[in-house]
Write a protein that binds this DNA or RNA. Sequence first.
DNA 1: TGAGTTATAGACCGTTGGTCGGTATGATAG
DNA 2: CTATCATACCGACCAACGGTCTATAACTCA
Lengths: 237, 237
Amino acid sequence: MPRVIKHPELRREELLDHAQALFLTQGYDRASLNDVIASAGISKGAFYHYFASKEALLEALADRFAKQALAGVQHISDDPGLDPLGRLNGLLAQSRRAKIDTAPEAWALFETIFRPENLVLFHRINLAASASFSPLLVRIIQQGVEDGTFRTFDPEGVADIVMQFGMATHDVVAKAIAGGDADMEMAIEALERRVRLYEIALDRILGLPDGSIQIGEPGYIRAVMTARRKSGAGKPS
Amino acid sequence: MPRVIKHPELRREELLDHAQALFLTQGYDRASLNDVIASAGISKGAFYHYFASKEALLEALADRFAKQALAGVQHISDDPGLDPLGRLNGLLAQSRRAKIDTAPEAWALFETIFRPENLVLFHRINLAASASFSPLLVRIIQQGVEDGTFRTFDPEGVADIVMQFGMATHDVVAKAIAGGDADMEMAIEALERRVRLYEIALDRILGLPDGSIQIGEPGYIRAVMTARRKSGAGKPS
DNA sequence: TGAGTTATAGACCGTTGGTCGGTATGATAG
DNA sequence: CTATCATACCGACCAACGGTCTATAACTCA
């Protein structure tokens, strides 16, 4: 094979792109390293020049996801025009938006990310995202507790619970996808329901009237999903 | 190798025992099938006579866990001497007891089950347990909602959230174990804190005064864990 | 005793993640 | 315009893995 030398950072990003596409469509376990390097048109030696292992590749991917998700959220937690509830809602909505309706190159597609075989990948991403988001969440909740908007509660605890909600969705949707008609309809239904559930749970944990927390308008997920399904996006560069 | 024929059910249980020990100490991925069959003193052919795949073995293991955990819980949800809150507390406490301080042959050891590489195993177990426990939880919550003990809420939703709490503990403790001194102390601390957190969260979700839900007395986990660590149990038959 | 089924053995296979010795390329200095 | 050196890359190779297959020993029952 002809030897092509590229700028290291570019190569690295390229590798992440191809890995992302394969991991998302086939799952981390089923997508082999050979598939990844073949897809990227690179040799084994080159790959191991950039990553120490397949596992390290996954880690890097999760980090990239988290970084991308964090971008454009930071400003919300500083916005002086919002009260704590507004900030919390803003941050939750934005993080959900980042997960679902970003450009396909960033956070990935609902249809694949939730497949059972992607548990490990999903989990890693969530951990990485949690590390980035928690400090912001904690600050917002602290402010809310101080100014009396929220009922007293361990702020870090709330942050933990919020991030955990993200993980929870995986099982629900995975089960819906796996079971029966394997149709998006069930999965979407399950996800919508789960979101409403968590909204109310959060309301009550924070001592707010039911309906205060709004991660997204009802029907939002369905709208985005059916649109996305038609266009069928998702491959890397 | 000499050919030893055993009663199929016994063989099966034996296989599960050895698999359990290996999966718990090394994780599902790292423990190879060859390790399992070597440990059980059995041939490949024999193994595949009992299980369709390594994955199926994991599934069977999770089922067994769930069945064992469910035993001795059923009666709580029927106990006529308890009100809904009492039943809920009873069920939560019992399920936690099943996880932590059962005989080592049953639910497994804190020190290993929470290791990061055991995510998949833990997840499977939790799913299986969730399937068994949810109906009981749903009934209790329904009763509580009807007689006014609990604030109105989607009972299945609450059950989902409760079961999710189980999964949440994994990350927390895994992180604590992995980070820094890798000491039990941190993990125990984290777990105790997480339990308190969920108690209050549940209180508020169900509209109860803080402190109503009691999964276990404070310090309970630490007591059990330090005791268990000294005796160092855990190998199969 | 013999036929049929079930439980076991173990050689074998394709694939996988990972290693290693080598080589082409681009930058730097003389 | 070289000589040098680190870097980016190649691809053959490897041990180990999950899984398949054929053969056969042991049980069952007529």
